[in-house]
């Protein structure tokens, strides 16, 4: 299936149900589902880039790729107003406490995307040096990993959509683990 079709398919559904009445419609649905639907379509990313992946993130934000099409346009320069942190780049030992503090300052619910090889595992070049954290998930929990060095803007968009799907699903960490194990068997 065409990717655009796929995106339209997964994004078209409103979580609730509209019951038509002669005087107008009534929205019904699980409150959680509606909240998750609303949340997933307005994720404000934190402007946080520690190396070259940041350039791809800027490209994703600008006119050609334009992640505002999916509800990510309100990039915030303060963690207190952000919902999602995209770790775009290498995290060094000196940056790790800063990253943790930024994450702690973000209001719940908060999400983390690890963008690129450095954020996933310490990177292809700096893997075994004295200064690099070998994966940002040693510091804060990560929701979506994107491989690449750096990942293309399409890959970042894909991960953002994957995060939306994850939020809409509304599962806890344990539920996700259970279900992914079940699907493998």
């Amino acid at each position: 299936m065409d990717v655009r079709e796929q995106i339209k398919e997964s994004n078209k559904d409103f979580a609730g149900q509209i019951i038509e009445t002669p005087t107008g419609g009534i929205i019904s649905g699980t409150f959680d589902d509606i909240v998750n639907w609303a949340r997933s379509n307005s994720l404000w990313p934190l402007t946080f880039a520690t190396s070259c992946c940041g350039i791809e993130m800027m490209s994703t934000a600008s006119a050609k790729y334009d992640f505002s099409r999916f509800g990510f346009e309100v990039a915030r320069a303060t963690p207190r107003q952000a919902d999602v942190i995209i770790i775009a780049g290498t995290i060094v030992n000196k940056m790790a406490p800063v990253l943790k503090r930024l994450y702690d300052q973000m209001p719940d619910p908060k999400y983390v995307i690890a963008m690129g090889a450095c954020a996933i595992s310490g990177g292809p070049f700096f893997y075994n040096t004295y200064s690099v954290v070998k994966g940002a998930d040693h510091v804060i929990p990560v929701d979506v990993y994107i491989p690449g060095c750096p990942p293309r803007p399409e890959a970042l968009l894909h991960s953002l959509i994957a995060l939306q799907e994850k939020i809409k699903l509304g599962w806890t960490r344990a539920q996700i683990r259970e279900n992914s194990l079940a699907s493998k068997v």
Binding site: N93, K94, Y127, N128, T129, Y130, S131
Partner: peptide, 23 residues
């Protein structure tokens, strides 16, 4: 100035291995 204050070695000295030798 660049490394973390808790570091207890001087990383550019030659006795500090550059890469994991078992890779």
């Amino acid at each position: 100035i660049l490394n973390v204050d808790e570091m207890d070695y001087f990383p550019m000295r030659k006795e500090f291995p550059l890469e994991d030798q078992v890779r």
